[in-house]
């Protein structure tokens, strides 16, 4: 348009040009159930448990802001490693449940775990029809361990 002629309401028509341009462009949409979005490695999707590493120290359950981790364990006496040595006790994990209906994904439990038993996995597909099924038990949490990604490389 030449600059001499003043077009009435230029803003209105510029806006319409923009929406038309958007319409003919491809929409930036991930077709979710067919195509899965890949979250970043650090994404806080679901907490996985390495039960081997857990020593039932209860730190995570105590530090959780909304107390959604349930841990039970018992102690067994272990034979001394050398004959004549001291009899040691070992804690055995009986139950480790996380209630994802309560969890607010703050990550404090993962941070405080002194033995590296908890990890974040970016997996996000575990919605349930019944809220009680959101209580993940030890096996379920252990299965998530497979999905834990390698930590990303760092910016030097």
């Amino acid at each position: 348009m030449s600059k001499g002629i003043k077009f009435p309401f230029p803003g209105l028509f510029k806006g319409m040009a923009l929406t038309f341009k958007t319409m003919v462009k491809k929409a930036p949409v991930t077709m979710y159930p067919d195509v899965k979005e890949i979250p970043v490695p650090r994404a806080r999707g679901v907490i996985s448990l390495d039960a081997e590493a857990c020593t039932v120290c209860m730190l995570c359950a105590r530090e959780c802001p909304d107390w959604c981790i349930y841990i039970e364990g018992h102690k067994v006496e272990k034979a001394p490693s050398k004959p004549g040595g001291r009899v040691r006790t070992e804690s055995i994990l009986d139950r480790f449940d996380i209630d994802y209906g309560l969890c607010m994904y703050c990550g404090i439990c993962v941070d405080v775990c002194p033995f590296d038993a908890l990890f974040w996995s970016p997996e996000y597909e575990y919605s349930e029809m019944k809220i009680s099924n959101l209580l993940h038990n030890q096996e379920r949490l252990g299965e998530w361990l497979k999905t834990v990604p390698e930590p990303p490389a760092l910016e030097s």
Binding site: T19, F20, T22, K25, A27
Partner: peptide, 13 residues
């Protein structure tokens, strides 16, 4: 459909 595409969506699919 057209409205969705104007809003950078895809609308009914």
């Amino acid at each position: 459909k057209a409205g969705s595409h104007m809003q950078a969506r895809i609308g009914p699919y």
